[in-house]
Each structure stands twice: as C-alpha cells, then as structure tokens.
C-alpha cells in the first residue's frame, strides 16, 4: 500500500471530455438599435416606460416591472456615476494579471440603468463610488457594433 495518495484526479483512469459548443447570439430588436447608435453615432440610448417612469439602459422592448411594451427611445448621453467598482488582480485562468483591471457598474445619469464596463485613464486610488465618468468610444472606423466599441469609461474632468 502506497503512502502517497493521489491528489490530482487526472492521475486516475478517466476519459477526457470536451464540449464543442459554438453559438451566435443575435442582438434582437432592442440590441440592434442600441449598437447601431453606438457604432454610427457614438450615442448611448435607452427605452422609457411611461407607466413606471423608468429608463432602461441597456434598452429593452418590455418593462420588467409592469410588463408593458416599450417604444419610446431616448438619447441618454454618455455620462454616468460609478455605482460600484472592483479591481481584478486575477485572470479567468487563475493567473495573476500583469495590469489589474478596474471594472465598474456605471449608472448612466438620468436613467435607472447603466453599463458594466472598465474604467480607464484614471488613477486607481481616485476611483470611488459616486465618481462621474464618461464613455470613451473607439474611433468610428474601428467600431463593430459591440459593447467593446466603448473602450472604457474615464473620469469627467
């Protein structure tokens, strides 16, 4: 009997499995219009529920509170307030990031929603809840209709 116990499950008899699973996710009616505005006009848009007086960012075609259909689109500007933030030191594979990433939930001003994004052009020590930030878009020719058409949000000077 060995006193060395197996601590790596890959050392015992096993069959390796690999799940091939590729998808495309169509943006839908709301997403199509939202990303077209970002790509072509560098504008962030939302939809408004007049019953609940709520503005949804990202936009939706329905209100999750009253379940009404939403058809009123509004330009919500590109500025927001940091609702919460974190600094990631670890990458998805568990390795240490060379450059920590600052993520934030940015409440877009005047709306009830916002965008989850990265914070850039900021001193890490200055980032705090309540800080005013604005979207920094990639140059128009590099935009492809994705959330990454916004490079990051930066502090409003």
């Amino acid at each position: 009997m060995s006193i060395e116990k197996i601590s790596d499950p890959r050392q015992v008899r096993h069959w390796p499995g690999h799940m091939e699973a590729d998808y495309i996710y169509t943006h839908g009616i709301a997403g199509e219009r939202f990303f077209k505005e970002i790509k072509e006009n560098g504008r962030i848009t939302g939809t408004r529920c007049k019953h609940c007086n709520l503005v949804y960012v990202p936009p939706r075609i329905y209100c999750e509170r009253c379940f009404e259909k939403l058809e009123e689109w509004i330009d919500v500007g590109t500025k927001g307030t940091i609702q919460t933030f974190t600094v990631a030191y670890v990458d998805i594979d568990g390795s240490k990031l060379k450059q920590p990433t600052t993520y934030a939930m940015i409440k877009i001003n005047g709306t009830n929603g916002g965008l989850l994004h990265k914070i850039g052009e900021a001193n890490l020590k200055d980032v705090k809840i309540g800080m005013q930030v604005e979207a920094v878009f990639k140059p128009k020719e590099e935009r492809e209709g994705s959330v990454n058409d916004i490079k990051h949000f930066k502090p409003v000077k």
């Binding site: 996710y25 990202p58 670890v90 568990g94 989850l116 994004h117 994705s146 959330v147 990454n148």
Partner: peptide
Amino acid sequence: PIFNRPLGGHP
C-alpha cells in the same frame, strides 16, 4: 453574451 461577456476577465 452581448452586454457583459465581451468584457472578458474572471467572472
């Protein structure tokens, strides 16, 4: 998949 996943990183 559309609004959050493209940002990447450890979830």
